[in-house]
Simulated scan of single mutants.
Amino acid sequence: MNRTKRLVILFAAVLLLGGVALGATLHAAGRAAEKDRTQAGSPPVRSGEVGLDTPGREVFRNMAWGPHRDEIVSVPAGGPDGPRTASGVKCLRFHAASGTGICLQAVHGKLRDTYRAVVLDAKLHELHRYDLAGIPTRARVAPDGRAVAWTVFVSGDSYAGTAFSTRTSVLDLHTGTLDRNLEDYRLLMDDRPYKAPDLNVWGVTFADDDRFYATVATGGRTYLVSGDRRTRTLRTVHTNVECPSLSPDGTRVAYKKRVQGASPDAPWRLYVLDLRTLRETATAEQRNVDDQAVWQDDRTLLYSLPGNYGSDLWTVSADGSGHSRRALPAALAPALTGRR
């Protein structure tokens, strides 16, 4: 190879490497600019005091980028688009009622993360903490604040497939009694005792301190069950129900239902079940809902969907009318005092 050819090859290589470097720089700059634009459009957040017993406030996990991401924040119920007050308390899952909060947290270690459940008072001060056996996924507080429940993934990290295992615990804050695994309760399937090695229980929603509803999965099917802590029993009520949420008047359950023909990765639609008639009503939300909804009032459901910051909160009527509406951007795990 003569000197001219070597120079041509060297020049081409320099141009190629320069192009690659320029492309990488522009790509990084584009990603940084996009993140800056996202942060610039995110809701304003400032530090302050957050109370679970403050009238006229909505409390939830903040998903906006910045130093207060994942903190529990509050906004005026009548002005949810206004500045958010950040508590400094970070939670992966959160719920509250009657001045009691349950916060499921990650504890970041050098080798691996661990998780814990922290019971909070009305000022978000820690009352109790418990180590968790897996990744937090659901949390609920009883309407009067005297019992809490949580669910974790012991294996797997999604309800969409079948390769997962859950553990659900209920804590009585009055007596300190902790039922560590609701799978130890006696299950009555169509009023007959039922046992199976593949049993999973998740998604508690309280009627009161002792009575609740939840999801049981076994044999490839899911069931709505009514639970009683005093008798330590679970009783099947209806099929194809996941992550139930009891209405404030105790007559209906909002839940995610697997619908025929949907993608295996996005199988759920938001439904409401009348507990008196077992009549199902599909809501106007046509997208996949992988959440345990909250009743904003007796007529309106509040739930999360993926958004620019990870999650936004949406509302829809419980009676199937109207259409869905985005209520809060960059938000997750809402809590309305006195709601289930």
Rank of each mutant, 00 (worst) to 15 (best):
R46T: 11
V73P: 01
A64K: 01
G41F: 05
V75W: 06
E49I: 00
A40N: 09
D70E: 13
A77N: 02
H68N: 11
P55Y: 11
P76R: 10
G41Y: 07
R69G: 10
P43V: 04
S47G: 07
M63V: 02
G41W: 07
R46A: 15
P43R: 02
P67Q: 12
D53L: 10
E49L: 05
H68S: 12
G78M: 05
H68W: 11
P43W: 09
P67S: 13
N62A: 15
R61D: 05
D70L: 13
R69Q: 15
M63Y: 10
R57C: 06
G78Q: 10
E71H: 06
E49K: 00
V75M: 06
G48S: 06
P55G: 12
G48Q: 06
G48M: 05
R57A: 14
G56N: 14
P55L: 12
V59M: 10
S47W: 00
D70M: 11
D53I: 01
R69D: 11
V45D: 07
H68I: 01
S74I: 00
E71L: 04
L52D: 10
A40C: 03
D70P: 00
A64S: 13
G48L: 06
M63R: 12
W65E: 13
W65C: 06
R69N: 11
S42D: 13
A40W: 09
E49N: 03
P43N: 09
V75F: 05
V59G: 06
A77L: 14
R57K: 15
G56R: 03
E58G: 04
E71D: 13
R46K: 13
A77K: 04
N62M: 09
G41N: 15
H68D: 15
S47K: 03
S74V: 00
W65A: 10
T54N: 06
V73S: 04
T54Q: 14
P80G: 09
R61A: 15
G79K: 10
G66R: 02
R57P: 01
V50P: 01
V45F: 07
G51C: 07
E71I: 02
W65H: 05
M63F: 07
R57I: 08
G41M: 13
S42T: 03
S42M: 10
H68E: 14
V45E: 14
G51N: 08
G79P: 00
G41E: 15
V50H: 02
W65G: 11
R69L: 08
H68R: 05
G66Q: 03
P55W: 11
